[in-house]
Design a protein around this nucleic acid. Structure first.
Lengths: 368, 368
DNA sequence: CGCATTACCTAATGCGCATTAACGAGTAAT
DNA sequence: ATTACTCGTTAATGCGCATTAGGTAATGCG
């Protein structure tokens, strides 16, 4: 008895919609060349040469000609499915990837990401996320969408640790941009704020300043604490006093950053101020405003430095002493690390050095 | 006799690499939920509700919970291969998508693309490409990678028509950003340069100018020819002379744009100049330089206008009369059109209106 | 109570390609 | 001649998902 009943219907695909059907498949190339589909795959992927699996030159030629004459182009979906990887890198940011306000943007970073991704043979998936409503469900599980890529980059200061933890626990290749201890075992690339900040303090000390004050914001992201750490290290290196009075925290109970306060500090012997850099540049703006209002001449009476790059809208002003984060390099490094993780590499953290910027806002301290 | 010999080995996939825990598949969700893979597919795609295929609420809930707890996310390649969609929109540019030189950038455009894509429930795939080496093979077939997505946006003035033609012929949903006639049947969105340029000329005529000259570059992209067309239309509308002398082409055999030439035109009765906008802003820069060198006061002795927005590095200068391309709106419109094409809509061209900008570089003509 | 519905769900199938064991045909070695 | 290989190619298989005919239990109908 035949196992198959005669009129057994066939489930599965509906017949191809007549209109769309034009693209040749490997099977058709194979038929035309008089070989098997497998041979076509081998020849076209060049895997024969690479893996030492030999295909005669004659067969190669036949296949190539057949493919060409049919105008064969591989179906990327099928390739990627069969190859169990899709050559896609995710980019997920906790704010809009293309913020309307260009000032605060990941643009320079993405420049590096794009370049390096291309170099490594990856395309990029931008998860329209967090901000705008996004393609997927909001909130819990939103991060899961990134699993469609082979790995994912995360941008932003405050990543939801628990969601990330889940990805990391599943051994999904993830790289966070910005130093982060939060989920244990998270790979990251970050700028070396500690060294860069120390270098700025050292430079100020080298100019002769003996009392330097850090103005920072009330935010405990690693980017902030690293800068403070480097600042304090720098003071220690130069043998300068580093008591709690050396750091002023905006939003402090002690009050705001005012001209009066600045005058008091100066009267107290402070000759140089250092501001933390953040997305908004609030600390730097506040410091400049206060110094300005206090009527103090910048390179003359007090020296100023910024632990980072000035916000774009202040790009025209004289460059402050400080350092520049090599954002494109950071992006490229992030991609490199992610590619390594995908290939099975370890989840490490990588620091990228910042470039010191002498600027024109610092000089020798004024004689008292 | 058994057809299969006893120890017949199994070709095909190698066992999954032990180390990395793979993404969950529908099959695992199914197992956890105690149902079949097909049911999972039905529930997750919502196809049950849509097509009236009944799935009990209880089963739905089980499946959804299992999927959620496993962090399931569909494999885009598989979805696509199975002839569905993957909610991915491609973006392919013929230069780096994030050019190092921010001046010429698709940034504002991408802002709109991201927003609208999110609104429509799509994620974006940036095909790293063209310029930098790209993920796929260069040249022939490079465009083919975009087939991974449900549809693709193409950016850039000079698209390789033959490659595009192939995609269009295969009925792959494509939208070109910028008017384009090249591959027949290509959908596009573009700014309405003709109307906008005409409006500028009309405004100048309204101020009393009777001789207006267009400075354009030597490039025959539609963006250029449309502006010239609108310029000439504007002249005609206002009854102004529009002979061949009304248009000056940089890189002309007649020579460069010099101060002397500008003086000669002015002596000849020209009171207003209009420059084409391009990526580099070359025409506008040349015109400004020449006028400046000729010692002519801008709103006073001659009026100037720019058929577009000034380059970013000239953003601080007084705004020229002209128009602004609503780039974010263009991006959004492109996404909308692409979504429509994916849904089976027609391949149409869409013009988006530009916003007239009075600026401060145009005034009544000087008395002779 | 027998048969037709209805409500739910599963089995089977294929999308197009990559992968790999196995096979046939030569050669060389035994 | 038999074994032992090498070389070139193919058959078979599955990647993960969507699709759809068909099955099964529960319900309706006369």
């Amino acid at each position: 008895m035949a196992k198959e009943a005669a009129g057994r219907a066939r489930p599965g695909r509906a017949p191809a919609p007549a209109g769309r059907r034009a693209r040749p498949r490997q099977a058709e190339v194979a038929r035309l060349a008089g070989v098997s589909q497998a041979t076509v795959s081998l020849v076209l992927s060049g895997r024969d040469l690479a893996t030492g699996r030999p295909i005669s030159a004659e067969t190669r030629a036949k296949v190539l000609e057949a493919a060409h004459s049919l105008g064969y182009v591989p179906d990327p979906a099928a390739s990627r499915l069969a190859a169990a990887r899709n050559n896609l890198l995710g980019v997920f940011s906790f704010t809009a990837t293309f913020p309307t306000d260009v000032r605060h943007s990941y643009y320079p970073f993405l420049v590096g990401v794009e370049q390096e991704a291309a170099a490594q043979g990856y395309d990029l998936v931008l998860f329209t996320g967090s901000s705008t409503g996004g393609a997927g469900a909001q909130g819990a599980g939103a991060l899961n969408r990134v699993r469609l890529a082979d790995g994912c980059l995360f941008l932003g200061r405050h990543a939801p640790a628990d969601e990330l933890r889940r990805l990391v626990a599943d051994d999904f290749p993830v790289v966070h941009v910005g130093r982060s201890d939060e989920p244990e075992g998270l790979a990251w690339v970050g700028a070396d704020y500690v060294s860069a900040s120390r270098e700025v303090v050292t430079a100020l000390a080298g100019l002769g300043h003996r009392r330097v004050l850090l103005v920072r914001e009330d935010d405990d992201a690693p980017a902030s604490t690293d800068r403070e750490r480097g600042f304090l290290d720098g003071l220690a290196d130069s043998g300068l006093p580093a008591g709690p009075g050396a750091v002023f925290r905006c939003g402090d109970p002690r009050g705001d950053l005012t001209a009066d306060r600045v005058r008091a500090w100066v009267a107290d012997g402070v000759t140089a101020f250092v501001a933390e850099e953040t997305d908004t540049g609030a600390a730097w703006r506040a410091l400049r405003a206060a110094v300005d209002e206090a009527g103090l001449d910048c390179p003359g009476q007090v020296s100023l430095a910024l632990l980072g790059s000035p916000p774009a809208d202040l790009a025209d002003e004289p460059a402050p002493m400080g350092f520049d984060i090599p954002r494109p390099a950071l992006g490229a490094e992030a991609v490199r690390l992610l590619a390594a993780r995908i290939a099975g590499g370890p989840a490490e953290g990588t620091l990228v050095a910042c470039a010191f910027r002498p600027g024109t806002t610092a000089g020798p301290p004024a004689a008292p």
